[in-house]
Each structure stands twice: as structure tokens, then as C-alpha cells.
Write a protein that binds this DNA or RNA. Structure first.
Lengths: 339, 339
DNA sequence: CCGCAGAATGCAAGCGCTTACACTCAGATC
DNA sequence: GATCTGAGTGTAAGCGCTTGCATTCTGCGG
């Protein structure tokens, strides 16, 4: 059994009859130690159940091997797939992930970023580009590398791995236009602190403006990513004098909620009302009709983000800037505009 | 601007004209420092942009304030809700969460546990009770407190926050029996390294045995938590000479996949085939028919697990053992057995 | 048999922080 | 006026590890 305190390098050294330097080398550069010595040390490590003290190592190495990620929420499927991939790739490269969630709130995010830095993270992954200048200054000052995900709309000197939120939504809107739709509505996450959501709405606006429609008449409902909230939004949209023929949702969860509510109101989707989603979450193909949506390569985004961060951690000067392609997935929920 | 290296306590002390001890006290026990001094120190901290070095602090305090969690996967919604709540509660108590995923693999999990310990976690959250004795020995030896989630089937001296997997599934099976079903089948996660899944199957067995049926005739398909895999399992089950009238799935994702495939084969659910789920994920109410399932209080489980871990970290001797109630959620996918 | 290169190991100086203990200095107490 | 008290501060000893440099040892060429 171990002593009352955890064994230290010195305990191992004493038991093996060598100096602490040699034990350290055994652990970090085994090839520099004679094999006979190495064996004795390894035995001592085993019998003592020794494992290096993390704090001491971090202190002298000036790095922890931990990177942090602050995401809006883990509760929905939106980020979990990407984060899973991110973590997996990080693990492959020998890094460990610390997670915090911001609840989509700017101050909370700033607090979490500081908390993670205080926990010694060597680098950060952040979602979206929108945050106080002070946060960026803090990160620069601490020389903490970071990469931004889910958008590419960032200053040129920052690393990012994302996709064109506006362009994707513009493409979907253009598709709807070609199906004869003229009265559009949008269900979006609250726009105030969410540049991705704003980008998506801007995409809708751009497309309908290009088609000669007035983008200012676009009805926008800002609700959280929840089934019921999206349903209520549908109720409000349909109560308008000129009800939309298509509702473009910022997310598949909202689309699913919207479809259900529309059906409950006796509308057929897409014959009476078309609905589109975003993200291509797993459940998008489960509902009836299946959701026409924008496929976002979450796994790829997570993987590339991890690679970009590891590069930055290694000191690569050139910040990685990756734009991933998105594609429209045509399923049943978007159809021709009703006559 | 900061110097080329990050500022240290000593830099702050020099600038404020005090000793490092006083600066340290300002940061950790401000009330023990005269207010005039404190102000000078705080100014120095601000102008230098000082933040304490994590490694040094961890070394001398002998704790990091980080706890780890190893979960099977983040990719599905199954764990994400619980982990979100876990993280949230931990954050409230001033702790930070490190995440690793095991891909439901025993060796990977053991590796991740060691990796997290090497990263200095003060405590651990683990899913399920099944792992090598060596892992538990290692944890004891390192004196790392841990709590186990998603099951209560653990030794009496271990902390756990979970629910009765077997009992829940037994209740659901009993309900199906009362609806006249006699030919059961199960779609489950691979049983080999998954005590929760085995518990659920055992629940089905227990119920049908109590009803006088032979539990050995129970057909079991072991497939991953994926829509398509569950669909293929349905194909196989329905090809049997005495096809089941009800398929009990170990998870809502599988149930959704099973329902879809059954419908594609022209069967009506539940008139021709009943299907049940587990977890009460958000999408369970989205599919048509909505899934009859077992509601698992994921958020509560995450929250309570965090509390239990914090207690253990504080040195409470008595390990918390929390059993959460589950309930059947009757929706459309389970109906009377066909005549 | 000497000298020397190169391999193996040890010595010891920190890394930046906390904290036990010692010290100083008012003001209160006798 | 001597003594005591306690608040405020400083001194310095580590915490456990890595690593530059010094030292020792080995085998080989001359």
C-alpha cells in the first residue's frame, strides 16, 4: 500500500537507488537512460503506484496540456456532435478538454473564459465571434491562443473553423423563391448576442431583396431552441394579416416544433405551409414530413477546429482559417407555394 | 503592455512596494490586509494584468479545482442533458469540468481515467459501475473521490446517483403484458460492457418470467444507438418464425429507428407492432406515433451527481447514494396486442 | 598504458505560489 | 512608563518537478 501521502519522484528515486533526475528522464525521455536502470526505476514506479504531480509539472513546464471550450449549451444536440469530434481529435493529439457553457449569455461567457484561463488552459475554442473587446484583449495579454468555430466572420488575424451562415440561408431562401414562395417568415434564436443567428437572418433578407421583395416586411420571431417556443412562434406568425407560406427556421429543433404546431392547427406541411430547418440534426429525418434543412458538417468542424488549435498551440504563426461547405438537404417539409 | 513574460506575484509585489506574501493575501484573504495596502496592490494587479499561475497554485494547494467526467459519448442526446446539468451545478460550486469520452469501450475508459488523473483532476464522475478492478484500485490509491451515475448497482461504499434500470424496464414490460402482449423482443445496446443495458434486459426477463413465460425465448438484438442499426434489428426480429408483437428498445433513438422501419415495411404502430423506448429524449414526442418510454430525470441526475461529488471532495465520509424515481410515459407507440 | 569521446548519471537551481512564523508598531492596560 | 495585545506585514521554507551543467564511467585509438 502507498504511504499516507502520495509518492513523489524522490520516493521513487530512493527506492530505485538513483537520483530524481534519472527518474524524471525515465518518464520523459526513456531512451536517454540505460535499460538496466530504467527497469529498476519502472519497478519502483509500479510498486509505489507513482504518478507525477500535475501542479509541479505544469509549473515547471509552463503548460498544462489542457484546452478549454466555451459553448452556448451542451443540452441540445446542436453542439454535442461537434464537441464530441473536437474532444476526440484533441485526445488523439494528447490534449485534454475542459468544458464550460455560456447559456448563450455574453457575461457568462466572459466569466467562463476567465475561469478557464485561471484553470490553466493552454488554449481555447469559442463559438461565434461576438464578445467584448476586453475579452479579446485579455486573451492577447495572456498570450492564450484560441480558435473560433461556427462562423468565419472574424478578423483576419484570428483562427476560425466555420461556414457561411448567411450564404447557407440565402441558398435555402433562393430555393424557396424558386418554388414560388413570396411571403417569408423566420423563426430564429434571439439575435442580440448571436452573430450566427443574425447571419442566417441576413441571408434570408439578402435573397428576398435580390428577388425584388422588400426585406423589411420579413416577419421574425426570436425564440429559444425549443419545440414549444417554436410552436408558439408559428401561432403568432399565422395570426398576421398576410400569413407566410414558408417559415425558415434557424435550427431543426425549431423546425420540428413548428411543423408539429402547424399540423395541430390543421395545416398540411408542405401543402399549406412550408417549413425549413438548419443543422441537419439526426431527428430532422425522423419527423413527418422530414425536414428540409441545411447540412452543417459538425463532425468535420469539430475535428478541424481541434487541429487548428493544436497548430496554434505549437506556435504556428499563420492562423488557420477554414471554411467548410454546407449543403441543402431537400426533404419533405419544403414544397411549392400554395396557389 | 505586458512584459514579454507573464507577470508574477513578485512583479506585483515590487510595483506595489510590498512583499509577495501581502499580495497573496490580497488575493486570497483580502480582509487580512489593510485597505490602503490592498488598494495599492489591486492597482498593481490591474496595471500588470496579473493572473495567478495555475501550476504554482495547484502545486502548493495540492488541488486543482478541476473534476473530470468520462462518459460513453457526447454525440448523442442521451448524456448531453445530464452532463449539461452536471457542469452547471459544478460551476455554481466553483469547480471546473474536464470531459472525456470512452466510446463505450472499457480500455478506452480506463485510459481516459488515467489521463484525467494525470491532468490533475480532484474528483471523477463515471457512468455505470462496470470496469476493471485495477481502475478502482488505482482510484483508491490516488485517493481520488468519484461518483458513479446512471445506475445504483454499486458496492455500498461507493457514491452513486442513478436509477433502477431493471425495475424501470420491468415496469414497462408488465404494462405491455397487461395489454395482452406475449411475444417480446428487445433491441439493446451491446450488453458486453454495459451494465445499464444488461439491467434493462434483465428487467424484461424478470417481468415475463413472472408472467409465466419462458425468458430464454426472448429475442435480443444488440446494436448501437443509431436509427439505421435499430431498423435493421427490426428486420431481423420480424423475420423470426414467431415474430414479436412488441419490441422493447433500450433507448429512444433505437425506438425511433424501429418505428420508422416497421412503418416502411407496411406495419402500423402500434396496431400491428408495439414499440417502446427509454430515456424520454426530446425527440420521443416528435415522431409519429410518439414513443411510449421511460422518463429518466437526466437533469436531476446531473445536478445531484455534481452535489454528491462536491460533498465527497469536501471530505464527507458518508458516500452519497441517490436513487432517482423513473416513470412510464404512455404515448402512442405501445398499444394492445394484435388479436 | 594514456587520453579522450561519448554515454550515463547526479547535482542543484529554479518554476510561482502559499503560509508558518517572526517581527514591528500602535494603542490599551495596569 | 512598562507591558501586553493584536493587527499588519515581511521572511523564507518549501510544494514536486525538469533540466543545464558537471561529473563519472566505459571502451577505444594511438
Amino acid at each position: 500500500m502507498a504511504e499516507s501521502a502520495l509518492p513523489t519522484l524522490e520516493d521513487v528515486a530512493r527506492l530505485a537507488g538513483v537520483s530524481t533526475a534519472t527518474v524524471s528522464r525515465c518518464l520523459n525521455a526513456p531512451e536517454r537512460v540505460a535499460s538496466a536502470t530504467r527497469e529498476r526505476v519502472e519497478n519502483a514506479v509500479d510498486t509505489l503506484g507513482y504518478a507525477p504531480n500535475f501542479g509541479a509539472r505544469a509549473l515547471v513546464m509552463r503548460r498544462t496540456g489542457i484546452v478549454g471550450a466555451v459553448i452556448p449549451t451542451l443540452a441540445s444536440a446542436i453542439f454535442s456532435r461537434g464537441i464530441q469530434a473536437f474532444q476526440h481529435e484533441l485526445d488523439r493529439a494528447g490534449w485534454t478538454l475542459v468544458l464550460a457553457s455560456s447559456d448563450s449569455n455574453r457575461e457568462t461567457e466572459a466569466r467562463q473564459i476567465r475561469a478557464l484561463i485561471a484553470r490553466g488552459v493552454d488554449g481555447l475554442f469559442l463559438v461565434g465571434a461576438e464578445r467584448d473587446e476586453a475579452v479579446y484583449r485579455f486573451l492577447m495579454q495572456r498570450k492564450t491562443p484560441f480558435v473560433i468555430g461556427w462562423t468565419t466572420d472574424v478578423p483576419a488575424d484570428q483562427a476560425c473553423v466555420g461556414f457561411d451562415n448567411a450564404g447557407a440561408m440565402e441558398a435555402m431562401t433562393t430555393r424557396a423563391l424558386s418554388l414560388g414562395h413570396r411571403r417569408f417568415a423566420v423563426i430564429s434564436a434571439p439575435l442580440a448576442q448571436n452573430d450566427r443567428a443574425r447571419g442566417r437572418v441576413a441571408g434570408v433578407r439578402a435573397a428576398i431583396a435580390r428577388a425584388g421583395l422588400d426585406p423589411d416586411t420579413l416577419a421574425i420571431e426570436e425564440v429559444p431552441y425549443e419545440l414549444g417556443a417554436a410552436g408558439d412562434a408559428v401561432d403568432r406568425l399565422l395570426a398576421a394579416e398576410a400569413a407566410p407560406t414558408v417559415v425558415m427556421c434557424g435550427n431543426d429543433v425549431q423546425a420540428a416544433g413548428a411543423i408539429r404546431r402547424a399540423q395541430q392547427r390543421g395545416l398540411r406541411v408542405p401543402e399549406d405551409l412550408s417549413i425549413t430547418g438548419f443543422d441537419n440534426l439526426e431527428h430532422a429525418q425522423l419527423v413527418d414530413p422530414a425536414i428540409t434543412t441545411v447540412d452543417v458538417p459538425h463532425v468535420q468542424m469539430g475535428t478541424r477546429a481541434a487541429q487548428a488549435l493544436v497548430e496554434a498551440l505549437r506556435g504556428d504563426e499563420q492562423p488557420a482559417r477554414v471554411t467548410l461547405p454546407v449543403s441543402l438537404v431537400m426533404r419533405g417539409s419544403l414544397g411549392p407555394a400554395p396557389a
